[in-house]
Amino acid sequence: MSRAGVQKTLDVSIRQKGFLAASGEKLEVLNNVVFRLEPGEVGAIVGPSGCGKTTLLRIIAGLDADYDGDVMRPAGGKLGFVFQEPRLLPWRSVFDNVRLAAPAASAHEIDGLFALLGLSEHRGHYPGELSGGLARRVSLARAFAAAPDLLVLDEPFVSLDAALAAHLRSELAALVARKPVTTLLVTHDVDEAVALADRIFLLSPRPARIVGEVSIEAPRGARNDGVVKEARVKIARVLE
Protein backbone atom coordinates (compact mmCIF):
# COMPACT_ATOMS: atom_id res chain seq x y z
CA MET A 1 0.00 0.00 0.00
CA SER A 2 2.80 2.41 0.82
CA ARG A 3 4.12 4.54 -1.97
CA ALA A 4 7.79 5.02 -2.65
CA GLY A 5 9.74 6.44 0.28
CA VAL A 6 8.92 6.21 3.94
CA GLN A 7 5.57 5.20 5.25
CA LYS A 8 3.73 8.32 6.42
CA THR A 9 0.16 7.19 6.66
CA LEU A 10 -1.46 4.66 8.95
CA ASP A 11 -2.85 1.91 6.77
CA VAL A 12 -5.13 -0.59 8.42
CA SER A 13 -6.52 -3.51 6.55
CA ILE A 14 -7.79 -6.27 8.77
CA ARG A 15 -9.69 -8.99 6.98
CA GLN A 16 -10.56 -11.08 9.95
CA LYS A 17 -9.91 -11.34 13.66
CA GLY A 18 -11.42 -13.83 16.04
CA PHE A 19 -10.97 -15.15 19.55
CA LEU A 20 -11.33 -18.67 20.81
CA ALA A 21 -13.60 -18.48 23.83
CA ALA A 22 -12.80 -20.64 26.86
CA SER A 23 -15.67 -22.89 25.84
CA GLY A 24 -13.87 -23.58 22.55
CA GLU A 25 -16.36 -21.55 20.58
CA LYS A 26 -14.97 -19.23 17.92
CA LEU A 27 -15.86 -15.57 18.37
CA GLU A 28 -15.57 -13.38 15.32
CA VAL A 29 -14.66 -9.85 16.43
CA LEU A 30 -13.42 -7.91 13.38
CA ASN A 31 -14.43 -8.42 9.80
CA ASN A 32 -12.97 -6.29 7.02
CA VAL A 33 -11.89 -3.19 8.85
CA VAL A 34 -10.03 -1.12 6.25
CA PHE A 35 -9.06 2.54 6.53
CA ARG A 36 -6.19 4.96 6.20
CA LEU A 37 -5.19 8.00 8.24
CA GLU A 38 -3.14 10.74 6.58
CA PRO A 39 -0.23 12.28 8.50
CA GLY A 40 -1.51 14.56 11.24
CA GLU A 41 -5.08 13.42 10.73
CA VAL A 42 -7.29 12.65 13.71
CA GLY A 43 -9.60 9.69 13.19
CA ALA A 44 -12.34 8.67 15.57
CA ILE A 45 -13.78 5.20 15.81
CA VAL A 46 -17.31 5.07 17.10
CA GLY A 47 -19.05 1.83 17.81
CA PRO A 48 -21.27 0.07 20.30
CA SER A 49 -19.81 -1.46 23.46
CA GLY A 50 -18.14 -4.82 22.91
CA CYS A 51 -17.94 -4.49 19.14
CA GLY A 52 -14.17 -4.88 19.01
CA LYS A 53 -12.74 -1.38 19.33
CA THR A 54 -10.11 -2.24 21.91
CA THR A 55 -9.21 -5.34 19.93
CA LEU A 56 -8.67 -3.17 16.86
CA LEU A 57 -6.42 -0.75 18.74
CA ARG A 58 -4.36 -3.58 20.21
CA ILE A 59 -3.75 -4.96 16.73
CA ILE A 60 -2.74 -1.51 15.46
CA ALA A 61 -0.35 -1.09 18.40
CA GLY A 62 1.27 -4.44 17.68
CA LEU A 63 0.10 -6.02 20.94
CA ASP A 64 -1.87 -8.72 19.15
CA ALA A 65 -0.29 -10.34 16.10
CA ASP A 66 -2.86 -13.08 15.73
CA TYR A 67 -5.08 -11.69 12.96
CA ASP A 68 -5.59 -11.91 9.26
CA GLY A 69 -4.57 -8.75 7.40
CA ASP A 70 -1.96 -5.98 7.37
CA VAL A 71 -1.24 -2.91 9.46
CA MET A 72 1.31 -0.31 8.34
CA ARG A 73 2.20 2.23 10.98
CA PRO A 74 3.77 5.61 10.22
CA ALA A 75 7.55 5.34 9.94
CA GLY A 76 9.48 5.94 13.13
CA GLY A 77 6.94 3.76 14.82
CA LYS A 78 6.94 5.70 18.06
CA LEU A 79 3.66 5.06 19.72
CA GLY A 80 1.62 6.83 22.36
CA PHE A 81 -1.12 4.65 23.77
CA VAL A 82 -3.76 5.78 26.23
CA PHE A 83 -5.23 2.50 27.40
CA GLN A 84 -8.80 2.11 28.52
CA GLU A 85 -7.34 1.82 32.06
CA PRO A 86 -4.53 4.17 33.16
CA ARG A 87 -1.89 1.39 33.48
CA LEU A 88 0.53 3.39 35.60
CA LEU A 89 3.40 1.87 37.57
CA PRO A 90 2.07 2.03 41.15
CA TRP A 91 5.60 2.09 42.61
CA ARG A 92 6.83 5.07 40.65
CA SER A 93 5.86 8.71 41.09
CA VAL A 94 3.69 10.51 38.57
CA PHE A 95 6.73 12.23 37.15
CA ASP A 96 8.74 9.01 36.91
CA ASN A 97 5.86 7.23 35.23
CA VAL A 98 5.99 9.77 32.44
CA ARG A 99 9.77 10.01 32.31
CA LEU A 100 10.27 6.25 32.04
CA ALA A 101 7.93 6.01 29.06
CA ALA A 102 9.46 9.09 27.44
CA PRO A 103 13.16 9.18 28.26
CA ALA A 104 13.78 11.65 25.44
CA ALA A 105 11.46 14.28 26.91
CA SER A 106 13.13 16.91 29.08
CA ALA A 107 11.89 17.58 32.60
CA HIS A 108 10.89 20.98 31.34
CA GLU A 109 8.65 19.53 28.62
CA ILE A 110 7.07 17.10 31.04
CA ASP A 111 6.35 19.86 33.52
CA GLY A 112 4.78 21.86 30.70
CA LEU A 113 2.43 18.97 29.98
CA PHE A 114 1.64 18.65 33.68
CA ALA A 115 0.74 22.32 33.85
CA LEU A 116 -1.55 21.96 30.84
CA LEU A 117 -3.29 18.90 32.31
CA GLY A 118 -3.53 20.26 35.86
CA LEU A 119 -1.06 17.73 37.25
CA SER A 120 1.65 20.04 38.57
CA GLU A 121 0.84 19.55 42.25
CA HIS A 122 0.71 15.78 41.81
CA ARG A 123 4.15 15.49 40.23
CA GLY A 124 5.64 13.62 43.18
CA HIS A 125 2.60 11.55 44.12
CA TYR A 126 2.26 7.83 43.60
CA PRO A 127 -0.59 6.57 41.38
CA GLY A 128 -2.35 5.03 44.40
CA GLU A 129 -2.78 8.56 45.75
CA LEU A 130 -4.58 9.82 42.63
CA SER A 131 -8.26 9.88 41.76
CA GLY A 132 -9.37 8.01 38.66
CA GLY A 133 -9.58 11.22 36.67
CA LEU A 134 -6.07 12.28 37.66
CA ALA A 135 -4.67 8.88 36.76
CA ARG A 136 -6.20 9.19 33.30
CA ARG A 137 -4.57 12.55 32.88
CA VAL A 138 -1.20 11.09 33.79
CA SER A 139 -1.76 8.43 31.17
CA LEU A 140 -2.51 11.21 28.65
CA ALA A 141 0.59 13.14 29.68
CA ARG A 142 2.67 9.99 29.27
CA ALA A 143 1.36 9.42 25.74
CA PHE A 144 2.11 13.01 24.71
CA ALA A 145 5.52 13.14 26.35
CA ALA A 146 6.60 10.18 24.23
CA ALA A 147 6.32 12.49 21.18
CA PRO A 148 4.62 9.70 19.23
CA ASP A 149 4.35 9.27 15.48
CA LEU A 150 1.01 7.66 16.14
CA LEU A 151 -1.23 8.44 19.07
CA VAL A 152 -3.88 5.92 20.04
CA LEU A 153 -6.54 6.64 22.64
CA ASP A 154 -9.04 4.10 23.94
CA GLU A 155 -12.06 5.91 25.38
CA PRO A 156 -9.85 8.32 27.31
CA PHE A 157 -12.61 10.36 28.90
CA VAL A 158 -15.18 7.76 29.77
CA SER A 159 -16.59 7.87 33.32
CA LEU A 160 -15.29 11.37 34.00
CA ASP A 161 -17.81 14.04 34.87
CA ALA A 162 -19.07 16.08 31.92
CA ALA A 163 -17.22 19.28 32.80
CA LEU A 164 -13.87 17.56 33.30
CA ALA A 165 -14.32 15.49 30.14
CA ALA A 166 -15.04 18.67 28.17
CA HIS A 167 -11.99 20.36 29.69
CA LEU A 168 -9.69 17.46 28.87
CA ARG A 169 -11.16 17.20 25.38
CA SER A 170 -10.21 20.79 24.70
CA GLU A 171 -6.75 20.15 26.20
CA LEU A 172 -6.34 17.20 23.89
CA ALA A 173 -7.44 19.35 20.93
CA ALA A 174 -4.91 21.99 21.98
CA LEU A 175 -2.12 19.42 22.28
CA VAL A 176 -2.86 17.98 18.86
CA ALA A 177 -3.01 21.50 17.41
CA ARG A 178 0.32 22.40 19.01
CA LYS A 179 2.10 19.46 17.48
CA PRO A 180 0.13 17.61 14.81
CA VAL A 181 0.31 13.85 15.20
CA THR A 182 -1.62 11.10 13.49
CA THR A 183 -4.23 10.18 16.05
CA LEU A 184 -6.76 7.41 16.41
CA LEU A 185 -9.40 7.86 19.07
CA VAL A 186 -11.94 5.31 20.19
CA THR A 187 -15.12 6.54 21.77
CA HIS A 188 -18.77 5.74 21.95
CA ASP A 189 -19.64 9.39 22.46
CA VAL A 190 -20.58 10.99 19.15
CA ASP A 191 -20.12 14.53 20.50
CA GLU A 192 -16.59 13.68 21.54
CA ALA A 193 -15.82 12.28 18.12
CA VAL A 194 -17.23 15.38 16.42
CA ALA A 195 -15.31 17.69 18.72
CA LEU A 196 -11.94 16.07 18.09
CA ALA A 197 -11.84 14.16 14.82
CA ASP A 198 -11.27 15.05 11.19
CA ARG A 199 -12.91 11.83 10.18
CA ILE A 200 -15.27 9.51 12.01
CA PHE A 201 -15.45 5.79 11.28
CA LEU A 202 -18.66 4.11 12.33
CA LEU A 203 -18.44 0.47 13.35
CA SER A 204 -21.19 -2.12 13.30
CA PRO A 205 -21.90 -4.35 16.29
CA ARG A 206 -19.70 -7.47 16.53
CA PRO A 207 -18.21 -8.62 14.25
CA ALA A 208 -17.18 -5.06 13.60
CA ARG A 209 -16.80 -3.65 10.13
CA ILE A 210 -16.85 -0.04 9.02
CA VAL A 211 -20.40 0.84 8.06
CA GLY A 212 -19.72 4.44 7.21
CA GLU A 213 -17.36 7.37 7.35
CA VAL A 214 -18.14 11.00 8.10
CA SER A 215 -15.71 13.87 7.53
CA ILE A 216 -15.84 16.98 9.68
CA GLU A 217 -14.64 19.90 7.60
CA ALA A 218 -14.86 22.72 10.15
CA PRO A 219 -11.53 23.44 11.89
CA ARG A 220 -11.24 21.98 15.37
CA GLY A 221 -11.34 25.37 17.04
CA ALA A 222 -14.63 26.37 15.40
CA ARG A 223 -16.97 23.48 15.98
CA ASN A 224 -20.10 25.07 17.34
CA ASP A 225 -23.46 23.47 17.99
CA GLY A 226 -24.35 23.89 14.34
CA VAL A 227 -21.43 21.75 13.21
CA VAL A 228 -22.22 19.10 15.81
CA LYS A 229 -25.86 18.98 14.78
CA GLU A 230 -24.97 18.69 11.12
CA ALA A 231 -22.54 15.86 11.84
CA ARG A 232 -25.11 14.05 13.93
CA VAL A 233 -27.53 14.19 11.03
CA LYS A 234 -24.89 12.78 8.68
CA ILE A 235 -24.08 10.01 11.11
CA ALA A 236 -27.74 9.13 11.57
CA ARG A 237 -28.11 8.94 7.80
CA VAL A 238 -25.14 6.55 7.53
CA LEU A 239 -26.43 4.32 10.31
CA GLU A 240 -29.85 3.94 8.74
Binding site: A61, G62, L79, L100, A101, R142
Partner: peptide, 12 residues
Amino acid sequence: RQLDEMAQVYCM
Protein backbone atom coordinates in the same frame (compact mmCIF):
# COMPACT_ATOMS: atom_id res chain seq x y z
CA ARG B 1 0.32 -8.45 31.77
CA GLN B 2 -1.14 -4.98 31.39
CA LEU B 3 1.99 -3.25 32.64
CA ASP B 4 4.06 -5.50 30.42
CA GLU B 5 2.06 -4.34 27.41
CA MET B 6 2.45 -0.74 28.49
CA ALA B 7 6.23 -1.21 28.61
CA GLN B 8 6.13 -2.84 25.18
CA VAL B 9 4.05 -0.07 23.62
CA TYR B 10 6.44 2.58 24.91
CA CYS B 11 9.45 0.52 23.77
CA MET B 12 11.09 0.58 27.18
